[in-house]
Design a protein around this nucleic acid. Structure first.
Lengths: 353, 353
DNA sequence: TAGCGCTGCTAAGCCGATTTAGCACAGAGA
DNA sequence: TCTCTGTGCTAAATCGGCTTAGCAGCGCTA
């Protein structure tokens, strides 16, 4: 069955010219090399008729470029996030005629190395190293000499690799500002805080959100009313933290949850205590998980622009390939910070007096 | 910077043999073609020392196989599901030394065609056509002559392509059996039913789940107590359906929700009506979304084995490449149905008497 | 001592494109 | 008539590996 692919040689034969001529015409160098209009037209016509498409593998062999990008993610555990990030990358890649190899390491260094090798064996033009939660990560040494971009992660060590991350710090400030504008002066933190070092280890997001929160509070002459550091940021943790908070302060007015799943747990605890959102308690959160929309009332949250992050990573990577080695040239690695958009729903109200 | 890749020629030169010899040794045909042990050893040593890795692009050019599979999904809207499916596919592919191209069509036929072309241009060895919800879909004609497998979708038309889908029908039967064993005799359906044709259009999952449910009820001499067909299967739909149900029957005993998001809405409606899960109402559902674990009480649900589906699709695809054209040979396309595992949590209790 | 078979290795072609160098022909000028 | 300059096209090398066919040298037989 398998109809054989139409090759350049087929086109050339059918048009009665040499493969060279066909190649020149189809790569747009016909005029430059003085192929007559009649022949050019004939080649194009035959090419269309036969449905010729160049074999990228072949081009890859001689040019060393395969129009392919490797996308290495460390975990797809919280895969919804990964999906959007990949989607953005995919779209940007497709727009530029690139394809994406996807690979997953589950955080294992050996399998990361293996995966990157497999990609290099296939002559990828560049590699995106994505993390599903913002963190510091080293650049694998195999990637020396290959264009690379970190996505939702920051390079550690001397490697001068550009990175693309959400602007967590700004979002932290914005979250506080939102509550201040609603008249709140007492803000409890669920998931981290109150001190600047009270964050789960290795999460850049937590550290930067907290820094933003604390700085914005400070500029209003305030400090967190309380902070509840959690090991993990899942609903049960949020539930427990708010449960504990209510034991100390039975009528909190405003919560900032460090992510939406914590907020979900917070909702549950508040509800069981007979407190209503937002009439009794305002809640602001981060991530804009799908969940945020489904809660009743809807959760006001700062979203991670996953799709935009993925898209930007691809664009940065393709940009690198044009200029020679710009990251190293400019001395220090470039960090692209993308704004986290606010999704205002029903969970914030003016403070009750 | 970019250290040049080590080629076979480099290894050969360093070992003082011809490229032919090096190739034979490294592809394991050394003994067969009588290369002396001394030379074999030397070639291997040099190869290791230089860190030689064969360039798969080159092999792809001559052999036409690139150890690469294209994974085309129609939508990543509900991307968590996609993520797990892709993860399973990824793992299986990696185990066999294959890489995955990922592409997304957003359901658009033109972009699907374009994507598949882009993959064929890169000489993929096969293509997996994945849907994020089980449905019928035609096989794009460009794929004639290429190995293909449908994932979470069934081929429509004469194309003899194997497919891998969850066994929705069996899960429907199991859901009912679970309730029957708990002593329930009155079962309300949220999302579809009561009649066998009362399903949202084009969802195979709904149709098959409903068929299983109705058949199992029938074999106990029962029929659905009521059924609430919803346009979409999102929390607000579940909320509304249960709201309506309660207007007719204020004390339902058992609900089967057609997915977890409907069940989430059902929980909310039950809660607002002062009914408790599972003491007053038992709830069974399908999908095992992450959400199911977070609800209080945890939702008892039949999960879609996404990871297993993805994995199996790859295995079926790679299996096809070994035998010639087995699907067509065997006459009718093979459908692989994978069991949907039960995740028993706290939402089902023995019927109150 | 020519012929045969075996051992151990290599030359050369191929996959499908791009690219460089250059060929054949026509017309113009010396 | 010979050279020179364009014009229009093509041969051949290349990318990096695999594969087929075959070569050289040796010992053994007839």
């Amino acid at each position: 069955m398998a109809r054989k692919r139409v090759t350049l040689a087929d086109v050339a034969a059918a048009a009665g010219v040499s493969p060279t001529t066909a190649s020149l015409v189809l790569t747009g160098r016909g005029r430059e090399l003085r192929i007559s209009d009649i022949v050019q037209e004939r080649v194009h016509a035959v090419s269309d008729e036969l449905g010729y498409r160049p074999n990228i593998v072949s081009i890859g062999l001689s040019k060393g470029t395969t129009k392919t990008i490797g996308f290495v993610s460390d975990t797809v555990a919280t895969s919804q996030l990964a999906g959007d990030m990949i989607r953005g990358a995919l779209e940007a890649a497709q727009e530029h005629g690139y394809m994406l190899f996807i690979g997953e390491t589950e955080g294992d260094a050996a399998s990361e190395r293996q995966l990157i090798d497999a990609m290099l064996d296939r002559q990828v033009d560049g590699v995106i190293l994505a993390s599903m939660f913002t963190r510091l990560r080293p650049l694998p040494s195999t990637l020396d000499g290959t264009a690379a971009v970190m996505l939702n992660a920051l390079p550690v060590g001397a490697s001068a690799v550009p990175s693309v991350v959400p602007d967590e710090y700004a979002a932290g400030r914005s979250a506080v500002r939102l509550l201040l504008e609603a008249g709140h002066r007492s803000v409890h933190l669920i998931g981290a805080g109150p001190g600047e070092h009270d964050v789960p280890p290795a999460t850049v997001a937590g550290r930067e959100r907290l820094a933003g929160i604390r700085d914005e509070l400070a500029s209003a002459g305030l400090a967190p009313a309380s902070g509840w550091l959690c090991d993990a940021w899942l609903p049960p943790n949020g539930f427990a933290a708010v449960h504990d908070l209510l034991a100390r302060d039975p009528t909190p007015r405003a919560l900032i949850c460090f992510n939406d799943r914590l907020a979900f747990g917070a909702y549950q605890a508040l509800q069981e205590a007979g407190l209503r959102v937002p009439e009794d308690v305002s809640v602001v959160s981060f991530d804009n998980a799908t969940l945020a929309e489904w809660l009743r009332p809807g959760l006001t949250t700062f979203g991670i622009p996953h799709e935009e992050l993925g898209r930007r990573a691809v664009e940065v990577l393709l940009g690198m390939r044009e200029k020679a080695e710009p990251a190293e040239a400019s001395g220090s690695p470039v960090v692209h910070r993308l704004a986290m958009p606010l999704f205002g729903r029903g969970s914030v109200a003016a403070v009750a007096r």
